[in-house]
Design a protein around this nucleic acid. Structure first.
Lengths: 190, 190
DNA sequence: CATTTTGCCTAATCTGTTTAGGCAAAACAC
DNA sequence: GTGTTTTGCCTAAACAGATTAGGCAAAATG
């Protein structure tokens, strides 16, 4: 019988595309096997189980996102960097909804530590270098930015901001302005 | 045979508790039936299908949350109201993780419009009354606050902020301070 | 008490996950 | 090139969850 040439790499990439097309939750071994024209059981030599597949898709998405952020932020500082960072997040989520959902898949701590999560945290802090915030304020700010980016993108892609003025792009721009202003005048008083 | 007395109401409440115990995704008809000591098929006279069950749990959670917010915000204004609102969200998420996840379940637009989502939006705007923001700034601010609250709570409950100083409560307090400051000095320039 | 309603059942189908074992294609050894 | 090992994909099978159809007895209604 003709072999399709399945590999773990292979499956994970296809799984990521599948997730973008039909949703991360629906990117199952069964559907993936169908796409490859292969029996479901055949996947199990390449991924341990359905959870393993999802985990690998999540790690792929996190790594892609970290690469994109890293590229966008390089050579920028201050508000420029903040905006570049934020836009990479948002654009990635809009272009790759399934992968973005995957990036938010709950990994067990060990797996997460081995993945690109650490790079994300480092880059977020790098951006704040331009704002001169001492600890613990820097950490508070990191958490705020992480919350806004992930929260906004989530609500937006859930359709929360469509069908009503002003349009989402305008709010996004204004929110980034506001965050920049906030970081420059961060209330450091006890 | 002894009857358990299933009702739609009944199932949805139990489903919500189940979600808090084992996660919203795991709150399935099969598991619910097990808890009631009935066969899975028996649920189908009360809920249309698994998706319908989840939708109803989501609507329950949204209504509970709206009630709690409404009670907490009553009689408060400005920063007081902001903090009360935010804390209801966060406390609800920490106490009822499954229900909170349910509240973020994607409803189709008609269902969402019929549910408590509208009350949430109204209350959010009510809070901003204390900050004197004209449109479209008010809408931008609503979207920012929604993003921060849901994003923060999401990251926190995913364990993103544990295992590292400063602790989450401190960041939360500081972030609310910062948001209050931001709203009072919202950059309204074009 | 008779009848209608209805709650939960059994039975059956379908789909997805996962394991075990087999056979042939590919890769390698010489 | 033939012989051997590896391995990719297969079939078969067990099992669990979702869902539908139809039945029977308990509850509600008259």
């Amino acid at each position: 019988m003709a072999r399709v040439g399945l590999t773990t790499e292979n499956l994970v990439r296809a799984g990521a595309e599948l997730a973008d097309e039909i949703g991360f939750e629906q990117a199952t071994p069964a559907e993936l096997a169908r796409r490859f024209g292969v029996k479901t059981a055949s996947l199990y030599s390449h991924v341990r189980n359905a959870h393993d597949l999802k985990t690998r898709i999540a790690l792929l998405a996190l790594a892609e996102l970290a690469d994109a952020v890293s590229a966008a932020v390089a050579g920028r500082a201050g508000k420029d960097a903040l905006i570049a960072f934020a836009n990479v997040y948002r654009d990635y989520a809009l272009e790759h909804p399934g992968r973005f959902a995957a990036a938010r898949f709950r990994l067990d701590p060990d797996t997460a530590a081995a993945g690109a999560g650490v790079r994300h945290a480092r880059m977020m802090r790098a951006i704040l270098r331009g704002y001169d915030l001492a600890e613990p304020h820097q950490t508070h700010a990191v958490r705020l930015l992480g919350s806004v980016f992930s929260g906004y993108v989530d609500l937006e892609s859930a359709g929360g901001f469509s069908h009503s003025a002003p349009d989402s792009q305008e709010s996004w721009t204004k929110i980034l302005d506001a965050l920049d202003a906030l970081l420059r005048t961060w209330p450091t008083a006890p």
